[in-house]
């Protein structure tokens, strides 16, 4: 608590800008957006992941995270989100190290697919034009996305996640001040 640093300088406008970035990222899977410029969250939280959670998580969204006590106190303070012990009970899951299995997170139901979790996954780097081949809604032909530091076996797990549509998990990949999204509709082929 002693090292608590400020959140968004302008909570309304900064949250709106981040929301717009996430909306763009979800609409055009694999395209890299910027978010969190100027934010200095406690490590290991990166700026983009911090901005996403500041914008989307609140008292109504249970949060699971593996980012340690300092980041937890910071998010608790700025988002007011209840932190839960089981990743499967969370609406937002923040993974900064070994990500929990997609299948272990909230999947939603046929009646309420919106209850599926959003995984905010911190990775080492995001780069357009090479790497994975993404296809699906929001993509005219194919988007290429290179993800440095994706969890091992992610592409296979993703295929299972996609097969469960309309249920499943959405992912926001965050690296530094950059983010890209993988909505549950997108198909990933190794590049």
């Amino acid at each position: 608590m002693t090292a608590l640093t400020a959140g968004f300088a302008d909570p309304v406008l900064d949250a709106q800008a981040t929301f717009r970035a996430v909306l763009e990222a979800m609409s055009r899977p694999g395209r890299v957006q910027r978010a969190g410029a100027g934010l200095r969250p406690p490590g290991p939280l990166n700026a983009a992941a911090a901005a996403v959670l500041l914008s989307l998580a609140d008292a109504d969204t249970p949060l699971w995270l593996d980012a340690g006590a300092e980041a937890e106190a910071w998010l608790r303070f700025h988002c007011g989100a209840p932190v839960v012990a089981a990743a499967g009970a969370a609406a937002f899951v923040l993974a900064t190290r070994a990500a929990p299995a997609l299948a272990s997170l909230a999947q939603g139901s046929e009646e309420e697919p919106q209850q599926g979790a959003t995984l905010v996954l911190q990775v080492a780097g995001l780069e357009e034009g090479a790497g994975w081949r993404l296809t699906g809604p929001g993509i005219a032909h194919e988007h290429r996305l290179r993800v440095a530091g994706a969890p091992p076996g992610f592409v296979a797990a993703w295929a299972a996640n996609r097969a469960a549509f309309p249920c499943g998990v959405d992912v926001v990949l965050c690296a530094g001040e950059h983010l890209a999204a993988l909505p549950r509709t997108v198909a990933i082929a190794e590049g």
Binding site: L4, T5, A6, G7, P11, F77, H78
Partner: peptide
């Protein structure tokens, strides 16, 4: 003081 969270 330093503002950690402006009045909201």
């Amino acid at each position: 003081p330093e503002r950690l969270r402006p009045p909201e």
